[in-house]
Design a protein around this nucleic acid. Structure first.
Lengths: 327, 327
DNA sequence: CTGAAAGCGCTTACAG
DNA sequence: CTGAAAGCGCTTACAG
């Protein structure tokens, strides 16, 4: 059996409360006592029972990650593991553990979240997806439970960490404008998605600031399960002969675009967005910096948790800068 | 504040221990009492504090997932999310939560695992990677902590759930043999990896059983960070003009192979292995069934955990069948 | 600078 | 079929 705090106290000749204070490294304990206690902890290979600690201290040093439905394409996306790495790196530095929750359907996922919150298993939640009127987010709100959304959030009263997608669209477009191009196409995924809209807005902003007239014939939105295929087909409707470059809003779209260009033997510079180095011969891409997104979301959640202890409610809205990578 | 078991007991007019028994649905409690207690739980929106429960009952209903180093290519691989989905589906059915642990280096990961085991945060561990003399696995062994390895394990005294890679290699090769081909190439990744070796062994076995002489000129192993590129180069050394089909051991290798074939305008059937439908025009592929791998590994870990309660030690070695998918 | 006491919210024998 | 008591292993005021 594992040694308990009592046995350490006994061996060190102090009370259990003193051992706790040494573990917490309180400054009120004399160095002499600290040394004695630490020696005893070492001798007995003492490690605190975290369940006991959580029970009394009301915090767990665990955060929960809420993933989307099992069916979500999210899992095929390198964004997920990269963000996970970012979160876990910073979490490890703060001695936080990570619990994850996913499920086949919304009901199962809601139950998992309830279990975490009701069961007092986690101190806060990060949602790795976002959708309007999500009952899981609503549940956290109703219970005054600390959380944030990593990504585009719908409600304006919710904390979030996200990319600056407008700026991203602008930067991508400016990359071509600076080369002197004027006829720049824009191909995106689902027009309903905030991310598509934001990047599109950035595209228009860049054109506007450069006094290049906006030409809607150069713009297409695609959607569907096989985004590569629909994007490929969108290409056929564009006046390619008049175009000098293409901005695409994500790698799946870029895949369709590049396939079309390769087949038709057309050379046209293409820029896209991704969270890892894309396996595509792009002219350049906007690295959305998923690692930093993960790191910052953990730090922000920590902030929210400690705010709550002080009965403060602050809504954080942080935008993570991206980088442009050229080859 | 959340209602406690005492308040439920009071409202229902029973003792706290009776409430516990109702929660556990013990058959010794009368239906009448059960109904009273359940009504009280509902009225007070009672949910047990899981930390208190774990403290006394010595189990947590949480399992830990040990991931490889942050730097591991593993994260770029669809295997990881798929296995995670499989594990979490079955875990949810058994009311288990999942804690994950990763880190930049081995030391950080070892600390995370120590925290889980010493802190009594999890009931068992699944390792999602495998390597010789892993100190984390050794730590679990030294502490008699229930665990299993998902994948090829090195030591023979360790429980594992894995693919039958020999059978897989054999099935892939037989797919072509049945079509009447005799000159079948085999291209794999790193020869040091058990998975490459096993699939290679299956390949040879299939040839042998069909009385087709083994020709080492048709076999190449590649390795390195950019497996597509090395595989591409391997193709140049093969006597392609004499070949009728190629078995590749993974999708990255297949990518290099297919690129070569496309560029040289050579038509040659290619089969590969993957955990999701590959984004490549393969003739067929062996679906390694990562979802089932995840599910079975959770079930097996549960078995190991309950074995330990009975002081049994059983070493499980389960091989999950794959499927062959043709287009 | 340190200790004794009380308590966090459960569950588990024990007893009837 | 049910309750009273003890205890899981910590931490937190309180007191000195």
């Amino acid at each position: 059996m594992r040694a308990t705090i009592k046995e350490v106290a006994k061996l060190a000749g102090v009370s259990p409360s003193t051992v706790t204070r040494v573990v917490q490294d309180k400054s009120t304990i004399s160095d002499e006592t600290k040394q004695k206690v630490r020696a005893a902890m070492k001798a007995l290979d003492y490690h605190p029972n975290l369940n006991a600690r959580s029970l009394v201290s009301q915090f767990t040093q665990v955060i929960g990650l809420v993933l989307p439905d099992d069916s979500d394409v999210f899992y095929q996306n390198p964004f997920f593991p990269t963000v996970l790495r970012g979160i876990s790196q910073v979490a490890a530095d703060s001695d936080y553990a990570i619990q994850i929750s996913t499920g086949k359907d919304e009901e199962g996922r809601l139950n998992a979240v309830k279990q975490m919150i009701y069961g007092k298993r986690v101190d806060g939640l990060i949602f790795l997806y976002s959708k309007p009127n999500d009952p899981l987010v609503q549940f956290a709100i109703d219970n005054d439970f600390p959380f944030l959304i990593l990504g585009k959030a719908v409600s304006p009263f919710v904390s979030l960490v996200d990319n600056d997608n407008i700026q991203g669209g602008q930067d991508a477009t400016n990359y071509f404008i600076k080369k002197g191009y004027k006829n720049i196409g824009f191909l995106a995924g689902n027009k309903e998605l905030v991310v598509s809209q934001d990047r599109f807005q950035g595209y228009k902003k860049a054109l506007h600031e450069a006094n290049i007239p906006y030409n809607e014939k150069l713009v297409k939105f695609s959607f569907g399960f096989l985004l590569e295929d629909t994007s490929y087909k969108s290409m056929e409707k564009l006046p390619i002969e008049n175009m000098e470059a293409i901005v695409t809003s994500d790698s799946l779209v870029a895949e369709g675009v590049l396939q079309y260009l390769t087949e038709k033997q057309i050379h046209l510079p293409v820029i896209s967005f991704d969270s890892i180095k894309p396996r595509l011969p792009l002219t350049a891409y906007i690295d959305i910096n998923a690692l930093e997104l993960g790191k910052e979301s953990f730090r922000t959640l920590q902030q929210i948790i400690s705010d709550q202890k002080k009965n403060q409610i602050i809504c954080y809205r942080k935008l993570i800068p991206h980088s442009i990578i050229t080859h």
